[in-house]
Each structure stands twice: as C-alpha cells, then as structure tokens.
C-alpha cells in the first residue's frame, strides 16, 4: 500500500510541476527564453488567493479566479516591460533580466507581505459530523480500511492537471491563436509574413503561462501550506527541470516530465532518503540529458541553412 500511496502523492506533486512547467515550456517554445521569474508568479498568485479568501473572506473559487486574473496581468506586464524591449538582444541579457525580475518579485513580496509565513487555508477540507456527534475536518478519502489515504487536494490536483492538459492541447491544435503560437514557435519571420503578430502571440503565451502559474500556486499551497515570499522558487526550479526533462518547448513533454519528476521525488523520499531526494531528482535529469540531450519528448533542433 505504501507503494500506491507514494505513487499517488508523486503523481499529485508531479501534476503541480507539470502545470508550472507548461509556463516555462510554452514561453521557451515561442519566445525562446527562460523566464526564471515564472516561479515567483506562483508565489504572487498564492498570496493573492490567500488574502482574498483569508482576509477578505471571498469564497475559494473567487479567490482562485482573482489570483489567475492578477497573475495573467502580471505576466503580460513583466513581458511588456522587461522582456519585449530585449527581443533582439543576446539571450544572456534576457536571462539576466529574468533573474532580476525574479528577485524583484521576491523582494516586493517581502516588503508588501513581510517574511512571516502565512498558513494557507485548506479549501478542500469538509466539516463532518461523526455518528457520536463530534465535529472534525475531513481532508481526504480512506480506502482499504484506512491503508490507502488520498487527500482531496491530491485528487483535485490530478484532475485539474488533466483538464488543463486536454484544454491546452485542444487550444493549440484547433484554434487560430493556438495554431499561430505553433507557427511562431517554428519560424517567427515566416509567421510575420502570414500576418501573425509575433508580439501579440508572445503576450498571449505569457498570459496563459502566468494564469496557470496562479492555479499551480494555489494547488501547491493547498498541499504545502507554508506561504513565504520565496515559496515559488523551489517548485519553479523543479518545474523548469521537469520542462527540460520532458523536452523544453513540448507541451506533452511538460506533462510527462512533471509527472515523472514528482513520482521520482516522492519515491526517493519514501525509499531512499528525504535529504537526498532533490539530489536524486537532479541526478536523474543529468542522466536523461546525457542520453537524450533534447529531453524525453524534445525534437531535434535543426539548424536552418
């Protein structure tokens, strides 16, 4: 049972990585840049949702919606102010800018919301009355007489991930904007000659990635409720790893990479060592990249002549 428990926790954690990894991979696919501030957008989303629900008493769903809206606008603003002026700059300049934006967001959060940890509420707990009349918070379902315990957060996380992946696949496969995004990721000048505005497309990509980051932030906080201004960096780095692992630029790659990374991490924690789990995760990444430098589902990048 402990195997099944670990597997389910791994898939759940991996689902969060996968949702965050989408932001990295889509932005990389289209703007050809690594947006290292992406992890901190998660943190902003979590704070917005926290304040909306805990301080202003909004219902959870409205809190999440507000977080998504704020992060979408934040992502587009970051892109316009920080990255768009560097469109033709060397990639190192863009990378350093992204790291700068990341520090800016963390320090702005420190100033605004102090370093004191906030305890993120569990939206998925249900108040249950026992037959004896006692009241307790039910946070999950128990199967096989309590041997297998799955929390609601876990179930919702996995479900949300699946829905997002299906929706995004439909979006990039069937809509005009989605196809334009794929066209831009292949060849920007050719896309311009088709009448596609590359700037708009990049903007939309940032909007989608950042909105998803807000959702991931809420899900991550629901599972690990300790909210501080640096909350976003570790899941951000892990999700970036997941994106590279799966093949950066590929949406199914982000899905696969995220899930695998989550499962490996939890298994390493369960069966090997909690302290070494991150080292094991990154060791697996290094091995995969040595064998397949483009990642699991990454395509060979062909140099144009």
């Amino acid at each position: 049972m402990s195997f099944l428990n670990s597997l389910i926790s791994g898939i759940s954690l991996g689902s969060i990585y996968a949702i965050i990894a989408l932001g990295y991979t889509m932005v990389y696919g289209i703007a050809k840049m690594l947006n290292f501030a992406h992890g901190d957008v998660i943190m902003v989303g979590a704070y917005i949702c926290f304040f909306a629900t805990s301080r202003f008493g909004l219902p959870p769903l409205l809190g999440v919606l507000l977080a998504v809206i704020v992060c979408t606008v934040l992502g587009m603003t970051i892109e316009k102010l920080a990255y768009a002026p560097l469109r033709s700059a060397p990639s190192l300049a863009v990378l350093i800018t992204a790291i700068g934006v990341s520090y800016f967001l963390q320090n702005a959060a420190l100033l605004l919301w102090t370093p004191n940890p906030k305890v993120f509420p569990n939206f998925f707990a249900r108040t249950v009355l026992t037959p004896e009349g006692a009241v307790f918070e039910k946070t999950g379902v128990e199967l096989f007489g309590g041997a297998l315990r799955i929390s609601y957060v876990t179930l919702v996380t996995i479900l949300v991930n699946v829905v997002i992946m299906i929706a995004l696949t439909a979006f990039t496969g069937n809509t005009k904007m989605g196809k334009a995004m794929r066209a831009c990721s292949e060849d920007k000048d050719a896309a311009r000659l088709m009448g596609i505005s590359v700037n708009t497309t990049i903007s939309v990509t940032f909007a989608i990635g950042s909105g998803l980051a807000a959702i991931a932030g809420v899900l991550f906080m629901s599972a690990y409720p300790n909210l501080v201004p640096t909350t976003g960096s570790m899941p951000g780095i892990k999700a970036f790893t997941a994106a590279v692992f799966g093949g950066i630029g590929s949406i199914p790659g982000a899905f696969l990479g995220g899930l695998l990374l989550g499962v490996i991490e939890i298994f390493a924690k369960t069966y090997i060592s909690t302290q070494l789990s991150d080292a094991i995760v990154f060791a697996v990444l290094i091995i995969v990249l040595l064998v397949k430098p483009t990642g699991l589902l990454g395509r060979q990048i062909r140099e144009k002549v």
Partner: peptide
Amino acid sequence: AQVPEGRRIFLQMTVEENLEMGAYT
C-alpha cells in the same frame, strides 16, 4: 504576400494548417 526563400513552411504542422496560417488575417 511573400513566399520566402527556402520555402519556410511550418514543418511540424499539417499541410492544411499551413494553408490556414496563410489565411490568418
């Protein structure tokens, strides 16, 4: 409309999707 040198079609998209991109506007 320009047909660029080296064709520059979208290699990973289908024929029909390529044509649809031509009608983007």
